[in-house]
């Protein structure tokens, strides 16, 4: 009960905040909620299943470009384009999973890194379609779902909140389901799970597809809400970001991804006012986290105060 209350409480606060926040932070929070959805997707594979991917930008971009190219080149309306994005992320993550899950540990990290890099370069290579690094703007007229203009700040905030709520609920439901509990067991001791009669491959495949699809949904929504798709969202940096957010917030906690994204977003936002080398902050935080707080903020909270925190 306490658990359900906590999450509903957070969503209620986020809902209420839009009426009081100044425009700048209002826009930021919409962006943070979409990026946190990406982080929730990442956390399902990294935090709960124990597989460290360095290639999630591929899934984020698969969603973004599945949606964006659908609008740009096939004149799809926004809703079917969004679905196209989600489907392409599901397909890409399933395909990569079939290959990458043949490896473990460090090899898995490098394989995901390499395929994501190949994906990024492919976007550059087909620059005629994708406009490469420069990217393309999605016209306001194409960003309408059921007559609602998603470029309007209030609607955009709502849409981001809906996406975030869906991801949060999916994550909570998943980790309380038998499937999710088996994923956690795989993280704890994979060989034992096999020797209890579960196919760990099938479970990891499922985890990677759910994780990639949520990430891709976040990518597609991001493109739709902020009206832009560009190759930089497929670069290594965008694979490192969710890792950073999840590590900071707490891997294997439901709220960790949101907390981590919120902190990191404002940390970078503040420092980019001072220096153009804002990625320095990301680097320092990564090193400090691995050294001193591998559990992250929510993980520490769970360890010290609230053992039952999901």
């Amino acid at each position: 009960m306490k658990v359900v209350g906590l999450h509903i409480g957070l969503l209620a606060v986020l809902f209420a905040l839009q009426f009081v926040l100044p425009a700048y932070h209002h826009g930021n929070l919409a962006r943070i909620m979409v990026l946190a959805s990406y982080a929730i997707g990442y956390n399902i594979l990294f935090g709960y299943t124990g597989l460290l991917s360095l290639g999630h930008a591929l899934f984020f971009a698969a969603g973004m470009y599945g949606m964006g190219l659908g609008i740009q080149h096939f004149d799809l309306p926004a809703a079917p384009a969004l679905i196209a994005g989600v489907v392409s992320a599901a397909l890409v993550s399933g395909g990569l999973a079939l290959l990458a899950l043949r490896t473990t540990g460090v090899a898995f990290m490098i394989v995901t890194l390499m395929f994501a890099q190949a994906g990024y370069l492919t976007i550059l290579y087909f620059g005629e379609w994708t406009r490469g690094d420069e990217g393309f703007v999605i016209a306001q007229s194409a960003r309408m779902i059921a007559g609602i203009d998603l470029s309007d700040p209030t609607n955009r905030y709502f849409a981001a909140l809906i996406l975030f709520s869906i991801c949060l609920v999916v994550c909570l439901w998943l980790i309380r389901s038998p499937f999710g509990k088996t994923l956690i067991a795989i993280r704890e001791n994979e060989e034992r799970v096999t020797m209890l009669g579960y196919s760990t491959f099938a479970h990891k495949l499922g985890a990677m597809v759910v994780s990639g699809t949520l990430s891709g949904t976040a990518g597609a929504t991001y493109g739709l809400l902020f009206g832009y798709a560009g190759a930089s969202f497929a670069s290594v940096q965008y694979s490192i970001f969710p890792l950073l957010w999840v590590l900071l917030g707490g891997a294997g906690t439901v709220l960790g991804p949101f907390v981590g994204t919120l902190f990191m977003f404002y940390l970078i936002d503040l420092s980019s006012g001072i220096t153009s080398a804002y990625m320095l902050i990301a680097g320092v935080v990564l090193v400090l986290l691995t050294l001193f707080a591998p559990q992250g903020l929510m993980g520490e909270l769970r360890r010290r105060f609230w053992k039952g925190l999901p």
Binding site: L54, V106, L247, L280, A282, G283, V284, L286, V287, T290
Partner: peptide, 10 residues
């Protein structure tokens, strides 16, 4: 690996 990624950016 995570730490050397941080080192890269630093």
């Amino acid at each position: 690996i995570v730490a050397t990624i941080g080192l890269l950016y630093i």
